[in-house]
């Protein structure tokens, strides 16, 4: 008993050792649960791996074919990048001001607004799809009704054509995750000492100026988190286009309008049974995300040092 207590004290009071102990659960769990699937996927990507059975080593063929014979991969990359900007990153432009507004004690009913804005994140997919079906239906939908009757323009074929499909997915993504990002920023705002604003107000800074000079710089760690999450989530976008475009019945809708990298990965793996090719996409995607998040990290570091 005493030996354990003594050891406990030894670790407990050791400032050098403590952080390793604190992060160790992650590595223990990663070794047990994370490493095998990742290693397995690397293995698969080098073989002609089918859903059932392995047809042998193919070297890098699963990778090279993506950039040579494959008719879909290029489109998937372009779609994903477009949706990344219009769907995932755009949200932060809305989420930060919204967080600041509902965080202000002067706004009456801010707790209610907060909950209402967060609702899309927890609304069931079934209801979401039904509603979006109603809103975006090209004959009976609310949006086309407004476009035709209020704006006097021709209705848009929201889910039927390649371009509009991307607009639909972007709107759906913004709708679904703005509240989620707002909540992340709300938490970040709690860490900013109130005194800073009071001091700035005394110096004669207006509200907008205060937020530009205090809120944004101090929110950088959280912005980095939010944007990283959006970059990763945006490159791995799957659910929304998949549900909207009929899942495996099409290859990302007419003209591959909504085919994202992850959607294509799942088609190759689960629909076509080509696990090796799917795994190769997973690794290409991994390196793309790694590069983009690294750039994001470097930019953030520079901003933070200023």
């Amino acid at each position: 008993m005493t030996a354990i207590t003594r050891m406990w004290d030894k670790i407990g009071f050791n400032q050098k050792l403590a952080p390793y102990v604190f992060v160790s659960p992650f590595f223990i769990l990663f070794l047990i649960f994370g490493l095998y699937p990742i290693g397995y996927s690397f293995f698969m990507s080098l073989f002609d791996m089918r859903l059932v059975g392995n047809r042998g080593f193919v070297g890098l063929a699963n990778y090279t074919r993506l950039f040579t014979v494959d008719e879909f991969f290029g489109t998937a990359v372009i779609n994903t990048v477009i949706l990344l900007f219009t769907g995932s990153l755009l949200q932060h432009v809305f989420a930060i001001p919204m967080a600041i507004i509902v965080n202000s004690p002067r706004v009456i009913g801010r707790h209610t607004f907060k909950a209402l804005f967060f609702a899309p994140f927890i609304t069931s997919t079934v209801a979401t799809v039904i509603i979006f079906g109603m809103v975006f239906d090209h004959n009976f939908g609310l949006l086309n009704w407004i476009i035709e009757n209020v704006l006097g323009m021709e209705g848009i074929r929201w889910t039927a054509r390649s371009g509009p499909i991307k607009a639909t997915i972007s709107i759906l993504l913004n709708w679904r995750f703005i509240g989620f990002n707002m909540v992340i920023y709300l938490a970040g705002l709690q860490g900013i000492p109130r005194e800073l604003y009071e001091a700035a107000a005394i110096d004669g800074a207006g509200t907008v100026q205060q937020h530009r000079m205090i809120t944004l710089p101090l929110l950088i760690p959280i912005i980095f988190f939010g944007v990283s999450l959006s970059l990763i989530g945006g490159f791995q976008l799957f659910d929304e286009p998949f549900v909207l475009l009929g899942g495996y019945d099409t290859v990302g809708g007419p003209g591959q309008g909504g085919l994202t990298i992850a959607y294509y990965l799942m088609i190759l793996g689960f629909k076509n049974g080509r696990l090796g090719r799917g795994a190769a996409i997973a690794w290409v995607l991994f390196f793309i995300i790694l590069i983009v998040t690294t750039v994001n990290r470097l930019i953030t570091n520079r901003l933070q040092k200023k």
Binding site: G246, Y248, D249, T250, G253, P254, I267, K271, N272
Partner: peptide
């Protein structure tokens, strides 16, 4: 299954 989903997308483009 591969061809079926390709066909599904193609039909959409013909209809439009």
């Amino acid at each position: 299954r591969t061809i079926e989903s390709i066909w599904g997308s193609i039909i959409g483009q013909v209809i439009e």
